[in-house]
Nucleic acid binder design. Structure first.
Lengths: 240, 240
DNA sequence: CGATAAGTTGATCGCAGTCAAACCGCGTGG
DNA sequence: CCACGCGGTTTGACTGCGATCAACTTATCG
């Protein structure tokens, strides 16, 4: 989050974290009015563009952020440059690793995102006082652990076509978690390269499998990014 | 943990959870004397053999358990039977998914293990009162999340030989986390089939890569299970 | 001993990676 | 307006790693 300072072109208007409060989402739902007011004095509303780095691996953590809109990708890289996306965060997730001096992943805005940035000391001091808040943070960690383990099955045991179908299914069910209709439509928040890094595949293989799903009428695609799924259940079948 | 009841042949002697208390390890280190005494009345010391099922996917959770000795493997299976090991637990980890009605993984003793079994209501009621305990549980969840994400890189981006080397390195550094000497020796807690399921490979590929490491003098093997690593740094180099 | 389970080794095949070329949308400047 | 270049994507031809199928070896135990 150390990039926040220098990115002057981004709007940094101090506001009350009303988005999360109003919707009782994210971590703010666990706070009372007084705590919320105290916290709101230290938070900053920040907009970041796709591709902006939010947190670097092995760098000290200066702040946390509530994701209000958009998608963030968490990545790890090997010495020789091989990259793996190890997690995606949607609203209203909390970005950042509590109780660690430095991050163990890199975080990057996958799409344009809105964040509610909270200084690390502010959040940790409130967390020490507020058991409900710490509980909420733990629940997110446990959910992320469940998701990571689900994804390990995909990475370790699924074929390329199942991996791509699983990714599309994940996005379809996460990007807009409203009522589950059989037909859905959405914009992919990730480039082919990012998808490949998420699935442990190459760009070319991802492209081929998407083309195959299109040929089999499981999905329709407009302008590379906009996906329509006529029947989610049929996509689900392709996930293995 | 519902198998605890019926497995009469296993010793179930009620004892104080002295192992974890004495070493200030695991969750018991977060409790005061009074809480520890109250908890010890409900806990049971249990020994399980390798291969015993401790928890089934999608089954209600009846209890938690502190791992005192041995290794537990957490697995997930696809409908068609493909299996993936999604985590390993060593002493003094806490086995079980807090704040969830049912488990999302299967747990099986990989080696002979000693457990300190705690009924779910007992632990959760103490956790509600004791913030340090909840904090300790959260720290474990965060650590498991870090480990899961590390492993996602291995699953998604490493070659077969790097995967096997990474597994051996993981075991070498986890089974006995004492002072780090260049030479180490240990027994593999997993069969070739389990290793394959952990790495997203087949048994044959695991066997071939182990043979290759042996041929290159990176490891020595006795009776399939006992491994000696003459130089941990050299094994580390093979991890990618 | 023989039976069985676990592990190793060999031969072959196919999926996904690699290398290369074409395609597409888009902004920029002539 | 079109020419041009550029990044992202698609498609094609070929290769190679790891899966598959099968035979064999080794350890264990009745």
């Amino acid at each position: 989050m150390q990039t926040v300072r220098k990115d002057i072109h981004n709007s940094e208007v101090p506001v009350l974290c009303q988005s999360c409060e109003a919707r009782h989402q994210g971590i703010c739902g666990a706070l009372n009015a007084q705590q919320l007011l105290a916290l709101s004095k230290t938070t900053r509303r920040v907009r970041k563009d796709a591709g902006d780095e939010l947190m670097a691996d092995a760098m000290p953590i200066a702040s946390f952020a509530n994701v209000l809109r958009g998608v963030i990708k968490l990545t790890k890289v090997l010495e020789d440059g091989r990259q793996q996306v190890v997690g995606l965060q949607f609203a209203p997730d909390l970005l950042g690793r509590p109780f660690a001096a430095e991050s163990r992943v890199s975080a990057e805005a996958a799409s344009e995102v809105d964040l509610c940035v909270i200084p690390k000391p502010a959040l940790e001091s409130i967390m020490k006082e507020s058991a409900p808040l710490e509980h909420r943070v733990m629940m997110q960690a446990l959910r992320e652990l469940d998701e990571a383990r689900d994804w390990m099955v995909t990475l370790g045991r699924k074929s390329a076509s199942e991996k791509v179908a699983s990714f599309l299914y994940l996005i379809a069910t996460h990007i807009d978690p409203t009522v589950e209709q059989p037909e859905t439509s959405f914009d992919l928040p990730l480039s082919r390269a990012d998808i490949a890094d998420f699935l442990g595949l190459t760009i070319e293989t991802v492209s081929r499998q998407i083309s195959k799903l299109k040929a089999d009428n499981v999905i329709e695609i407009l302008n590379y990014r906009h996906v329509t799924v006529p029947d989610l259940a049929r996509l689900r079948l392709r996930c293995g």
